[in-house]
Design a protein around this nucleic acid. Sequence first.
DNA 1: ACCTGAACACCGTTCAAGT
DNA 2: ACCTGAACACCGTTCAAGT
Lengths: 197, 197
Amino acid sequence: MGHSKGNVVATAITLLDEYGLPGLSMRRLAATLGVQQSALYWHFESKQMLLAAMAEEILARGPRPSSSRAWDTEVTRRAVALRDALLAYRDGAELVSTVHAFGLGAEEPHRRLATSIESAGAAPPEARAAATVILHFVFGFTFSEQQHLQASSAGAIEGAPPSAAASRREAEPEPFRAGVALILDGIRARVPQQQRT
Amino acid sequence: MGHSKGNVVATAITLLDEYGLPGLSMRRLAATLGVQQSALYWHFESKQMLLAAMAEEILARGPRPSSSRAWDTEVTRRAVALRDALLAYRDGAELVSTVHAFGLGAEEPHRRLATSIESAGAAPPEARAAATVILHFVFGFTFSEQQHLQASSAGAIEGAPPSAAASRREAEPEPFRAGVALILDGIRARVPQQQRT
DNA sequence: ACCTGAACACCGTTCAAGT
DNA sequence: ACCTGAACACCGTTCAAGT
């Protein structure tokens, strides 16, 4: 009866988490599914399209932040939720941010951030510009963070004291919150003052 | 008499500009230099190390912004200069930002930005956090921009009206300046007010 | 110090053909 | 609708050996 598209994507994400992005080959994926490599090209026109579908799925599986009446709380929660979604799978940040940069999808986070920022009283173009700043910060920060996390967990047994930090950290480090807070201050400076939160 | 390291890097950058990052293979580089592939591994322990050296060279070739008494002018000029450096070669933004994320170098821009921000009166840790925000914005923005530039210049003859924009644009688009300005406002909000510029 | 020759263990993609 | 079989045109890296 054959594999479905969703089926293929789910298996690909499992392999991503196990072998990382460089280890995710069409051949390995096909072997895991028990088909020939060429069969994958019936489901996806290229590996890039498969990666784009994986990025969407990883985002869809991420947490959905509870909304808030305070726009800045909401924006912060969205940034934290996005970071959590990226950290949930090995090389998640690299995958999603690359798909985004190549214009192949992963646009929901930007749209949602922009909507939350508009509720602060910003005009749509300004809200989009601010959303772009936040998005690139979250992508770049989390990409770097995930690399360092994996690099240090690679030198685990043979290396420096392993420390209490697990490879898949969820709590936000101080610099992450600080970066988001800085951008929020920038937004406040450009929006009609009305309430403090 | 053999090739020098700098020689190899320079040739690699030429190939990057001509074929793009996916087209830059060790085999192609070796062939262009007139040596065997294996010879490259005498100069660089891996392709990653070659890419790191290329990133440093691309940054070193970039413009050096004139300094300014006004810290915000200086930060803006550094951001613009960094973007220009990345845009100067095909896939420059992807290359440099990836090398940076993998912790293989390309740290000068961050240090320089942090220094300029400190002169606004920010404490070093705050200045570094703000520099991180700017750096990720410039990397992410320019990466996306460069992809779109190349995608549209790929569909040149056969496509929409080519427009006046060349493939290698140097003037900053409005959203780039807007993003930098937003972050500057965020910095101003966290620093003892003294002068306006 | 710098490179050759040869191999190892892989890649993404296409395409005619099958059921 | 979904897959096979086979091929095409590539990859990064290692290593003994040469000069």
